[in-house]
């Protein structure tokens, strides 16, 4: 009896917090189907009919399709580049013990704790000189490097679990070290590679501040910048429906990834935090 009472008592705050988390998100979805008049008349209720006019407007008036495309490019290029740079280094640090390998690892990992905001001012001028300012590929490079420490950290701990005997027998069979890295280690670390890639992709898809600094023209805006732009305009035009539609577009890919990879994402993030 006592147990049932404590259980119900504990459930109340849990349920309240669930509602606090879910309600704004669900309401954002609902809002994206409402007309502006409806949002004003009844901001927190259900729409009378479901219409896609807000999405159409986001598409036609704010060119959100271009921003989605830019965000996709930045995310995919950034995530691939991170892997290309992180996998060989992680392997060398973990398996080819060389003089200074621990120092190198420490340098990479401690970069996770350094506030990068100081570096953004010189980075701005560096990108300008390299003609990569206001360029989505420039942004993808900056993103990839920013996630390098996290990726190297997770991948080394992952490669540490692969049995050494596999490499040794491959080497005896005459396989080159390049072959061992690409044909043995990389496939065997696939689970870690997937985790890292999902985390990085979500990070790049969501990122706002570096995009704000390093992109300038509207045709290069990523989704986060486009949403910020629509939000600033909505303060005057009160075009909330379009704003909700664009927020919905930004959140749906993340929800899909979370639905599929919930465990991986949670594990990847807690591991990153423990090291941080």
């Amino acid at each position: 009896m006592k147990r049932i009472i404590t259980q119900t008592g504990i459930r109340i705050p849990l349920i309240i917090w669930s509602i606090a988390v879910l309600y704004p998100i669900i309401w954002m979805f609902i809002g994206s189907f409402k007309t502006n008049a409806e949002i004003y008349a009844n901001p927190w209720g259900l729409p009378e009919s479901f219409g896609f006019q807000n999405f159409v407007q986001a598409w036609s008036e704010y060119n959100i399709n271009i921003s989605i495309f830019n965000s996709l490019i930045v995310t995919v290029v950034g995530a691939l580049l991170t892997l290309v740079l992180a996998i060989p280094t992680a392997y060398a640090i973990e398996r080819l013990k060389f003089r200074g390998s621990n120092l190198l690892f420490t340098i990479y990992v401690s970069a996770m704790m350094i506030p990068m905001v100081l570096g953004w001012i010189p980075l701005f001028f560096l990108l300008m000189r390299l003609n990569l300012l206001d360029n989505i590929f420039g942004l993808a490079i900056v993103y990839a490097i920013s996630q390098l420490p996290f990726s190297i950290f997770v991948l080394t701990s992952f490669m540490g679990t692969i049995p050494k005997s596999l490499e040794e027998s491959a080497a005896i069979d005459g396989m080159s070290p390049y072959g061992i890295l690409f044909r043995i280690i990389t496939p065997l670390s696939m689970s870690g590679i997937i985790t890292v890639t999902i985390m990085n992709a979500i990070q790049f898809w969501n990122e706002y501040f570096m995009a704000l600094i390093f992109l300038q023209s509207e045709e290069n805006y990523t989704l986060a910048l486009a949403i910020d732009f629509i939000s600033n305009e909505a303060q005057y035009t009160n075009n909330w429906g379009t704003l909700f539609a664009s927020l919905t577009i930004a959140v749906i890919p993340v929800i899909i990834l979370y639905a599929i990879f919930q465990r991986r994402i949670a594990k990847g993030m807690t591991e990153g935090a423990i090291k941080g």
Binding site: I25, N206, E207, Y208, I227, L243, V251, V254, Y258, I265
Partner: peptide
């Protein structure tokens, strides 16, 4: 794992 932009605007 939501974007800070989305959280802030909500």
């Amino acid at each position: 794992i939501m974007s800070v932009v989305v959280i802030g605007i909500l």
